[in-house]
Design a protein around this nucleic acid. Structure first.
Length: 943
DNA sequence: AACCACTCTTA
DNA sequence: GTAAGAGTGGTTG
């Protein structure tokens, strides 16, 4: 316990023991592992809190055996060091620190001063180098040294014989020679050689391509050091490895210098000045008070816990990592009896005050309808800690004469009281599928921010795994807890009731549980984001999209009902006439829409020849089969094809769409799912506006039903061949990249490479092959598509790989990675998981997983790009004075806007710019991203 | 009423 | 060959 009055009991004769705290690396880890808390000024302080408790622990061991007699915190002073002179790419791709961490950096120095511990930083030296200098100097003086860090670079310094070790306070673990041997397979003095071979993507130390920790360790174990490895390449049998070592020997030597720690610089402060006898009470107490770290303050002053401080501190304590034990995380059983129904103003105020003081709260809304556009608010839930949740009913009962409304607070009052907290930038609102709740509050004029969405978090961590991302499923998975099923309250089918009819006790148990679980999920998932490298895609791509998509859904798109009705009537008449002709051709009536009956008619009654299909033993009657028959002159098949096209259009689009038009807005409000597609794409439902026909003349008429509001035009902007461009970049294919840069026709280039000549036929074939590549090629599949034999299919693929070896390389590398790691990644780090299928012994299952794995990085990167563009779009438009432009739809590579008349050109320019620069600054693509823009009175015209 | 198989629409 | 959602018929409970 820090206390100036404690006499120094360490014997004066004992060897001095210097603790060197790697402050810079610590706060990054603290930031990612702790919840985003704020101090009492509303500033972000999660990392500062973590840092403070770490110093506290160290101070606690002051004067104890093996505790420090001398201590210093080492920080990075400047970005630019001698390593940048050696290698201009050093740490070049490092993203800027998160926004809510930046203001915490200066607080770190304040905290260090509060403990009266020296804080050392030196221009031109990284913290690692300063630590090395002090370590070497202390060693020379015969001192013991403990480096408080878990940075692998610093492990080079460990020398237990000389009393130099490391302490990882996050995991509460001492790191000595044995731990280094376990991690690297080599002793500390050879760690630098291993690091040089394996490189470091975070610091952008190049290393040798193809060599990771395993191979690097093996090589150094075999040959002893880097130079010997490089001099012994003739002995290496694996050809790839050998060549890579030869080709990148210089990069390896450069890397060796980059990871070498500077240990001979002058010490900014003499060793003796780092002596630490005790921690004066005064500055520390003032600091803790200022930050509002009440639990630490109580421990310092020894007083009883102060009222009002308990919740936040309990949560902080619960979040404090005790990972060393690696025991089961302590499980707090869900206890629904603890939930509260809030029906009076005082209780409501109390909950809001608590959420505000704590700086985070889980929220959930209950409504009378699944469609958030027409839904009315029935109740709101808040959760501030496990089992600490409430339900605030605002719209229960009173809907009919039989039921009297229960006692509850008025809707307007509740919203007015919630608004400041929901919009408070210092209070994080956590929710599961917050998009829904965001719309509900948006309708009430409340812009909820900042937010964390546990459904999106789960998706960014676990896309592709064998479970979904719904709240109930995740509760079962992560907490082995069964949520109350919605059905249990509201029934199902015709007997279903709306949530406002549910009695308050039952409603509270169900609703508060959802908020409770969302909060627990957040505590569970948030730390995983950083640990599993999912922070970037979550923070920069998906989370920002939640409000963006909410707004798009709320705006909806205008649909011309009369026009659709007219189309429906036309299609209906045509269908009727076709039916009669089909019956005539088939010698009697049957249900045309039944593949079973159609199969019987074609292959039974009419006696045509054709194949059966797999499991059900039923005849296949899909387009391919019918087209084959039609080509043979079977009238019935031709008529059925026409019938199918028209019924599809009528049933799915012209009829159904009319029913989807919102009576109030006259518009269709689709719902976009952020977690709908494993690759990171959005999906659209109720209705699906991402599959509106375009290919055929007759289908395209449906697009004309999507119109602009009066005084507006519809503007469509789509990426030109984005997936092929990304494939050219990611697989590094010079000819294709050059073609895209020069604006050449990519399929013609491919045709030239594959067949030596370009005409309509070869170009079409080349186009098919290009797409086949994106989908994970197989000779069998390609042959089927091209209508050629399997051998010719294989020959074409071989030729393709020969002309574009980068593609083959990309496929091999992607498959090797996914087999090893179990997941693929996009350029922006989005993961899609493929275990266990990618290692399935069943070739068909495995093959399917492999094709998906080849496609996922490309499709996913494309999805990341358009999402980045969407996240930036509104700001960019507003900046150019185009606040009247509204983004309405996303169709994978296309964005649809409503633009005020006269602003088309200006809007087109901004939209094109935002879309084509969507990769920047994170990624520099070798190919341009071309965007085609068009506009008109309706969607069809905008293309 | 709930589910599956089949078919068809999009990128 | 990739990724989706939706309507229909037909079976199951």
């Amino acid at each position: 316990m820090p206390d100036a009055s404690t006499p120094s009991s360490a014997s004066e004769s004992a060897v001095p023991h210097l603790y060197l705290v790697d402050g810079s690396s610590y706060i990054f880890r603290a930031y990612h592992r702790l919840p985003p808390l704020t101090n009492k000024h509303g500033q972000p302080a999660g990392a500062v809190y973590g840092y403070t408790t770490m110093l506290w622990k160290l101070a606690d061991s002051l004067n104890k055996a093996d505790g420090p007699t001398h201590m210093a915190v080492i920080l990075d002073a400047s970005e630019h060091t001698h390593r940048n002179e050696m290698y201009d790419q050093y740490k070049a791709h490092r993203p800027p620190p998160p926004e809510d961490l930046v203001p915490q950096f200066p607080l770190i120095r304040v905290a260090t001063r509060a403990f009266s511990i020296p804080c050392i930083e030196e221009a031109g030296l990284e913290a690692d180098d300063i630590i090395a200098c002090y370590t070497v100097a202390a060693k020379a003086a015969g001192w013991r040294v403990t480096i408080v860090s878990s940075d692998k670079d610093l492990m080079q310094l460990i020398d237990e014989d000389a009393g130099i070790d490391m302490l990882d306070t996050m995991n509460d673990r001492r790191i000595g020679r044995a731990e280094v041997l376990e991690k690297f397979g080599v002793p500390p003095e050879k760690v630098g050689d291993v690091l040089a071979l394996m490189g470091d993507s975070v610091d952008n130390v190049p290393g040798v391509p193809g060599i990771g920790p395993k191979t690097a360790s093996q090589l150094i174990q075999t040959y002893g050091d880097l130079e010997t490895v490089l001099a012994s390449t003739h002995e290496i049998t694996k050809p790839k490895l050998k060549q890579s070592l030869i080709d990148h020997a210089d990069a390896a030597r450069l890397s060796r210098e980059l990871v070498r720690l500077v240990c001979d610089a002058n010490l900014p402060e003499p060793l003796e000045d780092l002596s630490l006898k005790g921690i004066p009470l005064e500055p520390l107490q003032a600091f803790l008070e200022d930050q509002g770290f009440k639990s630490l303050l109580n421990r310092l002053t020894g007083s009883a816990p102060q009222k009002g401080a308990t919740v936040v501190n309990d949560v902080m304590a619960a979040m404090e990592p005790k990972r060393a034990a690696q025991a089961e995380p302590e499980k707090i059983e869900v206890d629904r009896s603890k939930y509260e129904t809030v029906t009076d103003e005082d209780s409501l105020d109390r909950w809001i005050a608590e959420a505000t003081a704590q700086g985070f709260v889980a929220i959930d809304t209950e409504t009378d309808c699944i469609d958030c556009i027409i839904a009315r608010l029935v109740g709101v839930c808040l959760a501030t800690a496990p089992n600490k949740a409430c339900y605030i009913p605002v719209g229960h009962g009173g809907g009919d004469l039989l039921s009297e409304a229960p006692n509850q607070l008025p809707l307007d009052l509740v919203l007015a009281k919630l608004k400041p907290m929901l919009e408070d930038p210092a209070v994080l609102k956590v929710g599961h599928n917050l998009k829904y709740d965001w719309v509900m509050f948006d309708k009430a004029g409340i812009e909820v921010a900042p937010i964390d969405d546990t459904m999106v978090m789960s998706f960014d961590l676990d896309a592709g795994r064998s479970f979904g991302h719904g709240l109930d499923e995740l509760a079962k998975l992560h907490f082995d807890h069964e949520c109350i099923p919605f059905k249990q309250l509201c029934g199902t089918g015709s007997k279903q009731i709306t949530f406002d009819k549910v009695p308050l006790e039952a409603a509270t148990e169900y609703a508060a549980e959802d908020a409770d679980i969302a909060l627990r999920l957040w505590m569970r998932l948030k730390p995983r984001l950083a640990a599993e490298e999912a922070s970037r895609v979550y923070e920069r791509v998906d989370k920002p999209l939640v409000p963006v998509i909410s707004r798009m859904e709320r705006r909806g798109v205008k649909v011309d009902r009369e026009y659709l009705a007219k189309l429906s009537a036309e299609f209906g008449a045509e269908i009727k006439s076709l039916e009669e002709r089909v019956y005539e051709a088939a010698c009697g009536p049957f249900t045309i829409g039944s593949p079973q009956q159609l199969g019987e008619v074609l292959y039974g009654r009419l006696g045509l020849k054709g194949g059966r299909k797999g499991k059900s033993g039923q005849y296949s009657t899909d387009v391919n089969e019918l087209e084959r028959l039609a080509a043979e002159g079977v009238t019935c098949a031709t008529l059925v094809l026409e019938w199918r096209q028209l019924t599809k259009l009528k049933n799915t689009y012209t009829d159904a769409l009319q029913g989807q038009i919102n009576g109030e807005t006259g518009r269709v409000h689709t719902s976009f799912s952020l977690t709908g597609a494993q690759t990171g794409r959005l999906s659209s439902n109720d209705p699906n506006l991402q599959n509106i026909p375009i290919r055929t003349e007759i289908g395209r008429k449906i697009r004309d039903a999507f119109v602009a509001d009066s005084g507006f035009k519809l503007l469509s902007a789509d990426y030109s061949q984005i997936e092929l461009r990304l494939a050219a970049h990611m697989a590094d294919v010079p000819q294709l990249k050059e073609a895209f840069r020069g604006g050449a026709d990519i399929h013609s280039i491919t045709a030239e490479e594959l067949f030596g000549t370009v005409d309509r036929d070869t170009r079409n074939k080349a186009k098919t092959v290009n797409f086949a590549i994106l989908y994970g090629i197989s000779s069998w599949g390609l042959a089927g598509r091209l209508g050629v034999g399997k051998d010719e299919g294989k020959a074409i693929i071989d030729r393709y790989f020969e002309r574009f070896p980068g593609i083959q390389d990309y496929i091999h590398k992607t498959l090797a990675f996914v087999r090893e790691q179990g997941f693929t990644q996009t350029l922006f780090g989005r993961k899609t998981h493929f275990l266990p299928n990618i290692r399935s012994p069943n070739p068909s299952i495995r093959g399917g997983a492999e094709r998906a794995a080849i496609n996922a990085p490309i499709q996913g990167t494309s999805a990341d790009l358009i999402k980045r563009a969407m996240a930036r779009m509104d700001d960019a438009l507003v900046k150019e004075g185009l606040e009247g432009v509204r983004m309405l739809l996303q169709v994978h590579d296309e964005l649809v806007f409503e633009v005020p008349d006269g602003q088309e050109e200006q809007a087109a320019e901004v939209i094109r710019r935002v879309m084509s620069t969507a990769a920047e600054p994170a990624i520099r693509l070798d190919v341009p991203l071309d965007v085609e823009v068009g506009w008109g009175a309706h969607w069809g015209e905008a293309h």
